[in-house]
Design a protein around this nucleic acid. Structure first.
Length: 526
RNA sequence: GGGCCCGUAGCUCAGCGGUAGAGCAACUGACUUUUAAUCAGUAGGUCGAUGGUUCGAUCCCAUCCGGGCUCACCA
């Protein structure tokens, strides 16, 4: 880890988008000056597990946060907010215990029983725990905040009362955005039925801002007067985001492009409450290979677990760093590309100075402290090695790495070792299925048999040029017109591909007997 | 249809008023008793299109084309 010092001039010259966002945030704070800490927020809906978009949002927000800290030296916090007081509108179809869940429709997600059988007291608590484990796994720094706790503890009371005080102004902003039917019953404040525990989508019959109370009709028709605070009511969609900004003093929040209109509306509402909307921007959604929108139900695109099966979290961060305002295609082909571009940026960083270093993605990916040691070989090269050798044994692979990079430090080798795991998995899924082993010609069979015998005779401890010579001798003995044909035949029959590793070093690293066995196995196949 | 965002080399992206850049891919050469790796080099773009502002536009403005999101309910 190396954290460098940067001058103000360097920082002013940094052009990457997180610095641009940080500057916009600085301007906002000039308008709505306040004390530290500066609050960043990212929202989460606990009706499903965290996904690749969750990662992207937190990663990108963190990038802005670190750029802002460097620029201003101010204290910041990142709130990971869970909207866990929302009513469960329908039972997510992929969940276990459907009948159990169905009995708790309309209840706050933190009141819905946990269908997973884990130790958490509710459905939302389970998902919240998943979110935290997810964020912790990547080392994100954040403060988890639960909507339910905010409402029940009274933290949101002041805001709820403010909504009552500005009720007409808030309604005036929201009503035009609703259809005629919804307009009749819409209320920015929703009571929780004291009898059934359900979130009631009913209009307010009376409001009293001074007393902080509302009157509504409960499910059984009874008119009930209740205080708005203490978790007895909650804010509804279209008002809740604004209320949260107001109550928590959120200074920065980004959102997906699909929420553009919500951000605008919420900004107007928070102003009506007497607050200042946060800075932030709308990032673009992800597309699949054909340019279609990624949807979880369709199953196109890539799940985060899939990405992390084949490449590091850092490579995914790089993907998130790049061009957040363009709709990006998210499919398997980009994984090795991002993995290697990440390595490239990492290698370039030590030689860069000033703004160039600050604009290097790895500065953002590693929150200002990129690791000094990086793999001395590319992911693509490891894939070649795995493919060529047919072996995903890390020791074999690292043998090649040491061969190619004799000056690599132990730390660099360790970095390469971390990549071998990904290389193996990528190979198994994408490369191995495309291997085509063909039958040897008579000459090839004779040469291969001779080579196998010769390797067993030499044994494992000879220098690599002895092996190289053995390979050539076996080919020459069969009088191949062009010795290249012997090699290509060797690769196609034994390795199942048109190209392969240099044989001398390969045999030395892989082992003469092991190589002989590869050959024998190939011959036995045909 | 209205609003917002995007459109720079095959791919992923940088540049955002002063005669187009990077990485990868491609191609050529060197080296290697291989076709991997390595090194050196080459090529590749009317910066989506058309108008305008300007001494000068990829960069600013307008229009158009293409792609995405959004504009009933649900969040």
């Amino acid at each position: 880890m190396s954290r460098r010092q940067f001058s103000k001039a360097d920082i002013d010259a940094a052009k990457s988008w997180p610095f641009g966002e940080a500057r916009a945030l600085v301007k906002r704070l000039e308008r709505a000056g306040h004390d530290d800490p500066v609050i960043f927020e990212t929202g989460y809906g606990p009706s499903g597990p965290p996904h690749i978009g969750t990662f992207g949002e937190v990663a990108r927000t963190t990038m802005v946060r670190r750029a802002f800290e460097l620029m201003t030296g101010r204290k910041t916090r990142l709130i990971a907010f869970s909207d866990d007081m929302d009513g469960m509108r329908k039972v997510p179809p992929q969940l276990p215990n459907q009948e159990l869940l169905a009995r708790h429709l309309q209840e706050p997600l933190t009141s819905v029983p946990n269908p997973f059988g884990t130790e958490h007291p509710s459905f939302a608590h389970h998902n919240n725990a998943q979110l935290r484990a997810f964020l912790d796994r990547f080392g994100f720094d954040y403060d988890f905040v639960s909507a339910t706790e905010c409402y029940k503890s009274g933290r949101f009371d002041e805001t709820l009362i403010r909504v009552l005080e500005r009720y007409d102004a808030v309604m005036e902003i929201i009503l035009p955005t609703l259809g005629a039917e919804r307009r009749e019953t819409y209320s920015p404040i929703l009571p929780i039925s004291p009898k059934t525990g359900r979130v009631l989508y009913v209009p307010m019959l009376e409001i009293d801002a001074r007393a902080g109370t509302v009157v509504f009709e409960d499910e059984d028709g009874e008119r009930i007067k209740t205080e708005v605070g203490g978790g007895r009511t909650k804010l509804q969609w279209k008002a809740d985001w604004a209320g949260r900004w107001f109550a928590l003093g959120v200074d920065y929040e980004m959102a997906g492009e699909d929420l553009t209109e919500s951000v605008k509306l919420s900004s107007r509402i928070v102003r009506a409450l007497g607050g200042e909307p946060p800075a932030g921007f709308n990032y673009q959604l992800f597309l699949d290979e054909e340019g279609k929108k990624i949807s979880k139900t369709k199953g196109n695109g890539i799940a985060i677990e899939e990405w992390l099966t084949y490449a590091s979290p850092e490579s995914l961060s790089l993907f998130m760093f790049q061009n957040p305002k363009a709709a990006k295609k998210l499919y398997f082909d980009v994984i090795p590309k991002m993995a290697d571009e990440y390595l490239g940026f990492l290698q370039k960083y030590p030689a860069q100075n000033g703004a160039a270093a600050l604009d290097n993605p790895v500065w953002h990916i590693h929150e200002g402290a990129p690791p000094a040691d990086t793999s001395p070989v590319s992911f693509a090269m490891l894939l070649n090695l795995v493919s060529a050798s047919g072996s995903a044994d890390p020791n074999v692979l690292l043998g090649f790495v040491k061969k190619y990079r004799p000056n690599a430090s132990p730390a660099e080798i360790a970095a390469a070792r971390a990549l071998t795991v990904y290389a193996e998995r990528y190979f198994e899924r994408f490369i191995k299925p495309s291997k085509m082993f063909r039958a040897p010609t008579d000459a090839e069979r004779a040469a291969l048999e001779a080579l196998s015998a010769r390797l067993k005779e030499i044994g494992d401890d000879a220098p690599e040029d002895v092996y190289q010579t053995a390979v050539f001798d076996a080919g020459k003995a069969q009088r191949f017109v062009n010795i290249r044909d012997w090699f290509s035949g060797l690769y196609e029959v034994v390795f199942g591909q048109k190209e392969g590793p240099r044989m001398g070093p390969f045999i030395k690293i892989y082992g003469a007997r092991a190589t002989a066995k590869l050959i024998d196995d190939a011959l036995a196949r045909n």
